[in-house]
Design a protein around this nucleic acid. Structure first.
Length: 345
DNA sequence: AATCCGGGGAA
DNA sequence: TTCCCAGGATT
């Protein structure tokens, strides 16, 4: 597809000027260190800038370079990620750090093609790192870029269909800034819901969606997925000093995280008693805690919660007895348990 | 090509 | 409620 030369040059020049004047002062923009850009891009996957900032600051302070990341144990690393979600990101990053140390002398690969081979780095992230850190002339198409460009061009195209067009749109220099400017316009101006702030947009003069009032119908939206609801029974079991937790399976939702016993379904008091008996608990005080709902992307968990207080806890296979301190400092829990923090503090 | 994988902010 | 976020891996 051959695009109008004016349309392209206007886009490039306008975004360049916009970015020069209005780029946000974000922590990962302080330098072009490939490692910190990599960390930021992984954290920013499906996660908003505001959420990422404090995690990024803490992460870089403790793990300032690839070799530190490669050396830290996975449990401590998970703890740094606690609450960010999509925990496989951190597992893949850890694996990638070891590969970078062992096979790339501790230096991030300098081309998107090479970066793409690392676990956790897909087409977008490879393009983002290569263009921002190394100024490779390559696209970085995320949700923002897809939305901005499909509106600007007035084309109902998917993200995949947009990719081949990017070679025509990319400027010959300042590629990293061009890519970031597109994302910045997408997240601050050309926003998805309600009305985009077209009057403030640096590329509105040649935006087809703006001209033809198509911002509502562009970009084409993926079909929404069906949500399901599952009942769970949460047991916070304590002897006043220690708490019973266990490690989740290595596959599936919240893989490898720790949890308070979370039983399938809405268990009756009798069923709970039977479960506790298996843990060697035959005498206990049971307190009903407030129910809650934890929302994932594709399912809701309805949590029926109880606090179980007993005199003595005995070690049992597959369960771990931990102090409050270790619970807070060492073990990584899903944020769904935060709602019950007052009952284990 | 679909589905899975967290959590939160915003309307 | 619904959307969607600087997406990637798995099937």
């Amino acid at each position: 597809m051959l695009m109008n030369k004016n349309t392209i040059e206007y886009l490039q020049n306008s975004l360049h000027n916009f970015y020069s004047s209005f780029a946000r002062d974000l922590p990962w923009r302080k330098n072009k260190d490939p490692y910190s850009i990599w960390v930021s891009e992984i954290m920013l996957q499906q996660t908003q800038v505001k959420t990422v900032i404090p995690y990024f600051e803490r992460f870089l302070k403790l793990l300032p370079d690839v070799s530190h990341l490669a050396k830290i144990d996975i449990e401590s690393l998970m703890k740094l990620w606690e609450g960010l979600g999509y925990y496989s990101r951190v597992k893949h990053m850890h694996q990638a750090a070891k590969i970078i140390v062992n096979e790339y002398h501790g230096i991030l690969p300098k081309t998107a093609l090479e970066l793409l081979k690392l676990p956790g780095i897909g087409l977008y992230t490879a393009g983002a790192i290569a263009s921002i850190a190394y100024e490779e002339r390559i696209a970085a198409v995320d949700g923002n870029v897809h939305r901005v460009l499909s509106r600007y061009l007035g084309l109902p195209i998917t993200k995949e269909e947009l990719l081949p067009l990017m070679d025509e749109l990319l400027p010959s220099q300042s590629i990293g800034n061009f890519n970031q400017a597109l994302m910045e316009v997408g997240s601050r101006i050309c926003i998805p819901q309600s009305l985009p702030l077209c009057n403030e947009c640096p590329i509105n003069q040649k935006c087809q969606a703006f001209k033809k009032q198509l911002t509502d119908s562009l970009p084409i939206k993926p079909k929404k997925l069906n949500r399901t609801i599952e009942d769970k029974t949460l047991l916070i079991i304590t002897d006043q000093t220690h708490y019973v937790i266990r490690k989740r399976p290595s596959k599936g939702l919240l893989a490898n995280l720790w949890e308070f016993p979370l039983l399938e379904g809405s268990q009756t008091i009798n069923e709970i008693s039977a479960f506790l008996l298996d843990l060697g608990i035959d005498e206990f005080d049971l307190k009903v805690l407030p129910n809650s709902v934890h929302t994932f992307t594709h399912k809701d968990w309805k949590i029926n919660a109880y606090k179980i207080t007993t005199m003595k806890l005995n070690p049992v296979d597959h369960y771990t007895l931990v102090s409050r301190f270790d619970l807070n400092q060492i073990y990584t829990l899903s944020s769904l348990f935060k709602k019950y923090q007052e009952y284990y503090q």
